[in-house]
Amino acid sequence: MALVEERMHEIGSDEWSGGASVGDFFELLKPRVMSLVIFTALVGIVLAPGGVHPLLGAVALLAIAVGAGASGALNMWYDADIDRVMSRTAGRPIPSGRVTPEEALSFGLVLAVLSVFTLGVALNWAAAALLAFTIFFYAVVYTMWLKRSTPQNIVIGGAAGAFPPMIGWAAVTGDVSLASVVLFLIIFLWTPPHFWALALVKSDDYARAGIPMMPIVAGNASTRRQIVVYSVIFALIGLAPWALGFGGMVYGVTAGVLGAIFVGLSVDILRTGDGPHARKVSMRLFLFSIFHLFALFAVLLGERLATILAG
């Protein structure tokens, strides 16, 4: 409790704007991040062997989405001080004074407990434990510890964003298998090049907030080299579902082509250096990475649905 009180003092808990709208609370859930969580968790649920009743599948998806939203709200509660000084985040509900830190903290905690309990009761407690661990990992390990202390923040913290397909899989089967670990690894290895491409563009913002992102600590040149290394590993792991047999030929070709483009774009970043087009080239990789991840999971989903429909 001492931590909570200390934090409330630091982020100024006595501000009250006169009441938040329902939309402000919805914004605390980080809906854009949540949409990726819902999609990847859905792929985990559909790919898992055995299948699940559609209603229970929908409940699992809802619980995972709300759990992700809860960690988003807890993240916004703790990060209100740095969100205030970054242009990208200054308009969020707490820094702009529309939601008080107390409201955000309570909201996040209630949703976290509710989502874990619902997943445990409706599906199974292995999946619920994974969801609880994910919320803890994002809100405590990443937000409170790693984010402000190490340039490896998003490398390790990326695990939180990579768990949803594994939770979806566990909701159906009750355990963790090699295939679900591969789905985890795809997102885990995608995260560093994705965020560092953005960090290269927004490094001033991060520096102002005192967040030790890789370009600030190790420099742009080192970050670019690391982006290339992670891109190559990500492109290779992207082929794993095909190699292991739970991704078909369409997936294999898609992963191969997109992986090659991804590596090509990361090499472009390395070649361009700090030149006049640096910003454009980085943003190109950042935007492509979102499409890339979505496409890999969409093809896995499409192939599985086609198999189910074919009987």
Partner: peptide, 12 residues
């Protein structure tokens, strides 16, 4: 509460 705040509270 102002009317706007009352409306927000009602919606919540």
């Amino acid at each position: 509460l102002t009317p706007a705040q009352q409306r927000k509270r009602r919606n919540r």
